[in-house]
Design a protein around this nucleic acid. Structure first.
Length: 366
DNA sequence: GATACGTGGTA
DNA sequence: TTACCAAGTAT
């Protein structure tokens, strides 16, 4: 159970927090220039699972490329993916376009102004809905993100596992009581600024925190235990072969499927070991693997190639749930029209949205 | 409710 | 190198 504060303590906490925010909050962040819901929305989506420092240049570029909701709604998907390239979690930007179209068509271009309505837009969950509603429309609803989980967990010594979805309600209900009804947006942003500075996950400095006198975990030296969060499973190892097939017309180049990991991004042909091996206990030599890849390249693309393994270690890349180890195979081939994909010169293909793993493969080739 | 979904930074 | 963190959402 939470040892809830009385009204006097809650008022003192709000005043202390907001005084600090007014004095030391990061007012210089580009999305804090004003409270326009479009700007707030773009920034909040970009900031999901992504650090502020990473987001800043992407945000500025995005607002230049797509200055209004209508620009975003009408943009070609490839332009959106290119603008998002390197940020990760690419469904975020596809969902943004869906939401932009919803606002344009279902709401006549006028943003809904409540958390409940905002949650109905694609890609906007409880956190983002509360952030926009509080910042742009002054609705007193708490934005429960990783910072709020951590800050509240320490202040009140909350033992609930924040990895469990049902735990959100505990923190949301607490936040509803704490949030300043006069300055809900500033309150939420102050909690986030606090959570990324004095009350960060690592190297926190509770001793100098503006709210240290409210911090129950600091009081008894148990901050290390909060928040309680169960461990995520380890990424599953997957072995790939990448085929760098070069012809007089350029590289063999292909767009990934429209769903799943890196949907609609462009890469050279990639084969997972499991594409070849049905028997998990089978032991294949490298030469056999290369021969199998050549066979599949002919069947899938109609390309005849004598593949050569690149020297050096394989290229690796870690996703949230997968760890890829990619062996790069190269070949100089004829420019016969492929069954799938296309030939593309290097300068042209750099204009296509590419995932980080493909960039690593290019570096290995150069 | 567990899992999928990217990338960069830090210890 | 491994592990974990960083302003979550959809299915």
């Amino acid at each position: 159970m939470i040892d809830m504060w009385d009204e006097e303590k809650i008022r003192a906490f709000r005043a202390t927090l907001l005084d600090w925010y007014d004095e030391a909050g990061r007012a210089d962040l580009p999305w804090r220039e004003n409270q326009d819901p479009y700007r707030v929305w773009v920034s909040e989506i970009m900031l999901q699972q992504t650090q502020v420092q990473t987001v800043i240049p992407y945000f500025n570029r995005f607002m230049t490329m797509f200055p209004t909701l209508n620009d975003l709604a009408a943009a070609p998907e490839q332009d959106l993916l290119k603008a998002w390239e390197g940020l990760g979690y690419y469904s975020r930007v596809r969902n943004m376009q869906k939401a932009a179209i919803q606002v344009r068509d279902d709401y006549s271009g006028v943003w809904p102004d409540t958390m409940a309505e905002l949650e109905n837009l694609t890609g906007i969950g409880p956190y983002t809905a509360a952030a926009i509603a509080s910042i742009s429309f002054k609705e007193p609803v708490p934005a429960i993100d990783g910072n709020a989980f951590r800050v509240f967990a320490r202040l009140f010594k909350i033992d609930a596992d924040i990895a469990q979805p049902k735990t959100r309600k505990v923190f949301f209900d607490l936040g509803l009581q704490l949030i300043d009804p006069d300055r809900p947006g500033d309150f939420n942003q102050a909690i986030m600024d606090l959570g990324s500075s004095y009350m960060s996950a690592k190297n926190y400095d509770s001793e100098h925190s503006p709210v240290k006198q409210f911090n129950a975990a600091y009081a008894d030296g148990t901050e290390d235990f909060y928040p309680v969060k169960s461990k995520a499973p380890k990424p599953k190892p997957i072995t790939y072969f990448a085929v760098a097939a070069h012809s007089p017309a350029g590289y063999l180049w292909e767009q990934r499927p429209t769903t799943g990991l890196l949907a609609n991004f462009w890469t050279m042909p990639l084969y997972a070991l499991t594409d070849f091996v049905t028997d998990p206990d089978a032991e294949w030599s490298e030469d056999e693997m290369i021969a199998a890849t050549e066979k599949r390249l002919l069947a899938d693309y109609g390309i005849t190639a004598k593949l050569v393994k690149m020297g050096g270690r394989p290229v690796t890349h870690v996703y949230t749930h997968q760890k890829w180890t990619v062996t790069v195979l190269t070949a100089e081939v004829e420019a016969t029209t492929p069954h799938r994909g296309t030939w593309r010169e290097f300068d042209a293909l750099t204009r296509d949205p590419q995932p980080k793993i493909q960039e690593k493969i290019w570096k290995r080739l150069n």
